[in-house]
Design a binder for these strands. Structure first.
Lengths: 136, 136
DNA sequence: GTAATTGCAAATAATTTGCTGGGTG
DNA sequence: CACCCAGCAAATTATTTGCAATTAC
């Protein structure tokens, strides 16, 4: 059914970068990192592989709060926090509440596969920066 | 502080369209509807007003599951369901669980303002279509 | 060997912006 | 009557795609 997929050195490097990243990078950031290892890798290849890896369930694509997608090397569903000041994305370490899916299935009848939740607010670093500024 | 904002007939029409929409339309759909009332309205004006209305809290901008934004004339936070087959977006009528925000505030220390949740799966119409097809 | 994948560059899609004239408060 | 906002078109940004050469299996 699904097309055969080959493990190229480009794909391997991209996956490795995402797994080792402690942030939720954009395609462009992944591209810059990948160039350090494969100098003539192209941005198109990065985008193509990010899509392949997302479709095969190896990574997550996130598109909250910005005009571009961010990627997450941890494919297991988890919650995120978006800082409205510095626009960073953080992992939130509370368990995914799967009971919600069942609740929605009961009220709508839909086949609910999963859900995603993003929290919005101000992160600790930005809170500190704001309260030390004279503008408060 | 924030700039004065004027009520133009364009802005009024755009807001009215969104409030009466029973779907979660794209900027382009809003533009097509608005043209029926103000034939020479421009797409740029639609985008500008959607941003103004979003910033002033009159509408919500949603960007889940697609490459373009959708807009919601109901500015109160509520959950959504995205059908992975037909790509429609539905409102989910379960109450927003604000206790989650407090939980995240306690585990992270962040100032959590709110959260958004989207459910993913297959809607009823698509379920019916799938089970009646010979491909199941 | 052959089909998937690459690099490159051009194409697309969605949204934003500069400018000048018009309409709101 | 000042200044925000409209229309128009060109610019920007993020992402996708066509093609010939390359490479994994």
């Amino acid at each position: 059914m699904s097309k055969a997929t080959r493990m190229t050195k480009q794909k391997k490097v991209i996956l490795e970068i995402l797994r080792n990243a402690d942030c939720h990078p954009s395609a462009d950031w992944v591209y810059e990192q990948a160039r350090k290892i494969i100098p003539d890798i192209s941005l198109g290849t990065v985008y193509r592989n990010l899509n392949v890896l997302r479709d095969s369930g190896h990574i997550l694509e996130l598109n909250y709060g910005s005009t571009y997608s961010r990627y997450d090397g941890n494919p297991e569903n988890h919650y995120h926090f978006y800082c409205e000041k510095c626009h960073q994305l953080f992992n939130v370490k509370i368990p995914v509440y799967e009971g919600l899916d069942k609740m929605v299935k009961e009220t709508t009848g839909f086949d609910v596969r999963n859900h995603r939740t993003e929290f919005y607010g101000i992160c600790n670093e930005c809170k500190a920066r704001l309260s030390s500024s004279s503008l408060m």
